[in-house]
Design a protein around this nucleic acid. Structure first.
Lengths: 153, 153
DNA sequence: CTAGAAGTTGAAGTAAGCTTTAAGTCAAGT
DNA sequence: ACTTGACTTAAAGCTTACTTCAACTTCTAG
């Protein structure tokens, strides 16, 4: 009698996350689940929307801690509406803008580096981005590893 | 009698890397060092340029494996010229462009998501970027964790 | 010569975000 | 009832890029 609750496997295949990830998110308190008599997880359908949000946030680059904080902004008690979700995800736009700006600054700095042939420890804005950060940039321009594009060089 | 060779501490403070990082890079084969009679590292000055390159590449987001591959493109035997360094770092521009494009696609997708109030697992381009990737994007739009900006939400 | 700063090593620790493994339990179809 | 697939747990493992530790040695200034 599969009522309206979902097993971890169903949630996994519908959300696109691996079952182990779904369990991990539950352990981490990002989602919650009831239990069957036998102790197996029973998820409400709402968890799928929550997972969609998590997926989106991860794609945008939020850490799980940040995702947790964002989810905590949701209304306690009532089921979140589309407006609730949107209010939260709107904040991401500024973040993306900042990231794009940082990358563009880096690219432009690279152009000038290539032009001047430096790569000097003291002068190069790329190898030495403290100067950039100290200048007019939006915080430190230090980008972490990105998706494995086929190594360009 | 400090000839023209540098100790690990000197290299560290001049390059901006921690001494432990410099040793790590040597272990990983990104840089090399001669040894004193007593077994201490003696770096040539050229290592500073190499470290500047490594620093720049890391700032742009290359993994150490990619940096190693890039360094392997340098001429064997002779000391690399500014042109050598520039030839290699020019390739980074395409990478940065691709990353910027991916972020912009993500931002625009987010706009439409906010507009339509979806965040649906099936329809949302953000929570489900496979569709984007399958469409016209430059590879998977799946961005890793970024520099800790103060959590926007 | 000697103190003390700086260097050496291998091994273990850190962080995030999961995955894998092992050993065992539950659920469902026949 | 039985078989099979899905599920359970805690604990360990993975990856990257380093840092930290402990115990010891070397270098250099005075």
């Amino acid at each position: 009698m599969p009522d309206d609750s979902l097993s971890v496997g169903e949630v996994a295949s519908r959300s696109g996350f691996a079952p182990s990830a779904v369990r991990y998110y539950e352990r981490e308190g990002l989602i919650s689940a009831a239990r069957s008599e036998g102790g197996q997880r029973r998820f409400e359908r709402g968890v799928l929307r929550r997972l969609a949000f998590i997926s989106a946030a991860r794609h945008i680059g939020l850490s799980l801690d940040e995702v947790r904080a964002a989810l905590d902004q949701l209304p306690r008690g009532r089921t979140p509406t589309a407006a609730d979700w949107n209010r939260i995800s709107k904040l991401w736009r500024a973040r993306l803008d900042a990231e794009i700006e940082a990358l563009e600054a880096l690219r432009d700095g690279l152009e000038s580096c290539i032009g001047c042939g430096c790569l000097s420890l003291k002068r190069c804005r790329i190898s030495n981005p403290h100067d950039v950060a100290a200048g007019a940039g939006p915080g430190a321009v230090y980008l972490p590893r990105r998706l494995r594009q086929p190594p360009a060089s």
